[in-house]
Structures are given as C-alpha cells and as structure tokens.
Amino acid sequence: MRKYLLVTLFLLVGCDSPTVPNGVTSLTVNPSPVNFDALDDTIQAAVSIGGASDAVVKWSVSDLSVVKVLCWSGQTCQLISVANGTSTLTVTSGSVTTSAPIEVSQLAASFELSDTALSFSALGDETQLTIAPKDRMGHEMSGAEVVWATSDESIVAVSDSGLVTATGIGDATITVTSGSLEATASVMVKLWTSVSVGQSHSCAITTSAEAYCWGSNQYDQLGLGESMTDTAEVDVPTLVSGGHSWESISSGDQHTCGVTTAGDSYCWGNAGYSRMGDGTSGSTRPTPALVIGGHSWASLSGGRRHTCGITRYAEAGCWGDNYYRQLGDSTRSTRSSPRLVSDGHAWESISAGYDHSCGVTTSSQAYCWGNGQASKLGYGDNESRIAPTLVR
C-alpha cells in the first residue's frame, strides 16, 4: 500500500512542469529611424527576431494622426505617412520590446509661381506673388521655407513674403528658391506714352522710346524677328526687334508701322499688296523694314491693306493697295513706296481705314477719299473718290 502511494505522488509532481518561454531573445527593426519626406507615402518595415523566427509579433505606433500601420504578416508591416509630425513605432514579442522613431517632414519636390510674367505701368504698383510647393507625392505644403530675390532693386523690389513693387523703369527678374528648387518671374516696368490697336494685335510706345507688341503674330505683325516667326500668339508685351527708338506706332489689319525718333518710317507684318512701302510685295516681314523714299516722317496710320503718313513738312503720302482709290493719288494703281496724296494740301493728321482714308489739314479742314460705300466719305453720297474731297 505504501509503495503504491509513492508512485502516484511521483507521477503528480512530474506533470507540474514550468511554463516554456517563446524563445525570443531580441528584436531589430529596419529601417530605424523611419523618415518620410512626403505625405501618403509608404515605407515597409521589417523586424528581425533573435532566438525564434516563428514568434508572434505585435506592431503599434504612438500617434496614428501622424502615421498609420498596415500589417499583413508578423515580421513585415506597412507604414503610411498621414501628417507632418513625430511618432514612435513599437514592436513587441512576448516580453521583448523594441522601438524606432518616426518623423514625417515634407520636403518640396516641386512648386509653381502664381505668375511668371509681371507688367507694371506705374511706379509704386504692387503685385503679390505666391508659390504652391508640393512634395514628391503631389501634396501641397504649408510653411515651406522660401527665399525671394530680385535681380535689380532699382527696377523692382520683393519682400520676404513675395510682394513685388515697381521701383524704376526697365526689366528685371524675381527668383524664388526653396531648398534646391528655383522658379523665376520676369518683370517689366514700362510707362506707356501711346498704344495702337489692330485687328487682332496691339502695339505701344514707352517713355523710353521702346516699342512693344502683343496678340496675334500670324503674319509677323508683332515684329519680333526671325526667331519668332513660328510664334502664332504672344500674350504679354514683347519688344519689337531692330533696336530702334520709336516716336509713334500704328497697328494695321495684319501689319504694323512706326516712326522712329529720327523720322524714319518702318513697317513689318503682312507684306501683301505692297503695304510695307519698301518697294516690294508678298510674304511677311518679321523685322521692321525701312520705308523707302527718304522722307522724314511725323506720323503713320496703318489700314487694312494700305498705309498713310504725314511727313515733318506736312506732306501726306500713302502706299499699298489702291483698288478702292484709298491712296488718294488720283490713280487706282497699287504702290510699293509712298506716293504723295493729290491736291497739295498741308496736312496735320491722317488716318487709313479699311478701304478709304481721311485727313485733317493744317487749316483744320477734313478730307476723305477712297471707297464711298455706306456714305463713309462724308460727302452726302455713296460715290468713291480718287483724290481728297472736302467733308461737308
């Protein structure tokens, strides 16, 4: 009986063995630290387990508003950036724990200026430039460090916040940088003295005697030079080529003419119907072509297919298409160079229209000639006139 009891007691003690640990001796997270430079970015983290490769692993982060965790197996996990800030990644297996710091800090990968071409027509005028920096995932950033600079403070100034102020006449460039990124905006400060509107383009003269044109360039009527002949349209004032100093300018239907401060006349654009006045016809002129004849001009006016002007000696001359007698030289012949308007008046001003012309003499009398349809010559009838006739 005693022997039986001893055997039974031995068996009971043998079944009461201690708990067996999971065998994990260490945990190592890779990468550590975890750094994000963009929102909505994903980094895959992995844990190396020392002592037991098949142990159960638990992942967690201290701040889900900064980064969230998506795990699909025990030893790998996806971390997705949500907002700028810091958090802590914690990995636990049994009694063993390790952690890795997490930082989400957007870096600018690209940005756009609110405007890349500024034009001022008065000193002291201001424009606020802004930028929209984005990280490499395309998310906009706030509070990005940017530096604003101007190429010439005597022309334009820029504040630390991007406020641009015109300080002088000329051209300058605003540069904004953020890290390794850079963007520029061209600035033009011009004070205008006159402007002329054509069919689909405009031209103007500045106080510094420069000529600028903008709009359609289908026929090279902006005068931008050979390098711009394939440019169909220009949306900001652009300097007319040739380096001349301009006194006045006139935009015609598909061409433009101007008078320099020296009294020379130049035309550019559609050269059909001999409207350039340079002795030729056809094709286009992308750069200003000198009007021949040796006259000293005071003003010009561009019409549809013809041009008229007043010399500094009060003479009126016209050239180009003359089908409707709009040149006023008592013929219907197209002229490739200036021809004096008939009747020998002394002229104060002149204006070339679609298919007729009118002028005012130094004695303040108005005359018109050309196509008389729609009573546009002011004679009380619809008859065309081959030479200037007094407006009633």
Results as ranks from 00 to 15, higher is better:
residue 2 R to N: 14
residue 6 L to Y: 08
residue 9 L to W: 11
residue 9 L to Y: 13
residue 10 F to W: 10
residue 11 L to S: 10
residue 14 G to E: 15
residue 17 S to P: 05
residue 21 P to S: 10
residue 23 G to L: 07
residue 27 L to R: 00
residue 30 N to C: 11
residue 30 N to Q: 15
residue 32 S to P: 09
residue 32 S to H: 12
residue 39 L to I: 13
residue 39 L to H: 10
residue 42 T to A: 07
residue 45 A to N: 07
residue 50 G to Y: 03
residue 54 D to N: 15
residue 65 S to R: 13
residue 70 L to F: 13
residue 103 E to P: 09
residue 122 A to M: 05
residue 124 G to F: 01
residue 125 D to G: 07
residue 125 D to S: 06
residue 126 E to G: 05
residue 131 I to Q: 08
residue 133 P to A: 02
residue 136 R to G: 09
residue 142 S to Q: 11
residue 146 V to C: 10
residue 152 D to N: 07
residue 159 S to P: 00
residue 160 D to Y: 09
residue 163 L to F: 06
residue 165 T to D: 03
residue 166 A to D: 01
residue 169 I to V: 03
residue 170 G to D: 01
residue 171 D to Y: 09
residue 173 T to L: 01
residue 175 T to D: 03
residue 179 G to N: 03
residue 179 G to P: 08
residue 180 S to H: 11
residue 205 I to M: 09
residue 206 T to W: 06
residue 224 L to K: 01
residue 228 M to Q: 07
residue 229 T to E: 14
residue 234 V to C: 02
residue 237 P to F: 03
residue 238 T to R: 05
residue 238 T to C: 12
residue 243 G to P: 01
residue 243 G to F: 02
residue 244 H to I: 15
residue 247 E to K: 07
residue 251 S to Q: 03
residue 254 Q to H: 12
residue 257 C to Y: 00
residue 258 G to D: 04
residue 259 V to F: 11
residue 265 S to Y: 09
residue 266 Y to S: 11
residue 267 C to F: 07
residue 272 G to Y: 06
residue 274 S to L: 10
residue 280 T to G: 08
residue 283 S to Y: 15
residue 286 P to S: 08
residue 287 T to A: 10
residue 291 V to C: 01
residue 292 I to S: 10
residue 295 H to V: 03
residue 296 S to F: 14
residue 303 G to H: 05
residue 306 H to V: 00
residue 308 C to G: 01
residue 312 R to Y: 13
residue 315 E to I: 00
residue 322 N to P: 00
residue 327 L to N: 11
residue 334 T to P: 06
residue 336 S to K: 04
residue 340 L to G: 02
residue 340 L to D: 04
residue 353 G to D: 11
residue 355 D to S: 08
residue 365 Q to V: 05
residue 368 C to L: 12
residue 369 W to G: 00
residue 374 A to N: 13
residue 379 Y to E: 07
residue 379 Y to M: 13
residue 388 P to I: 01
residue 389 T to D: 15
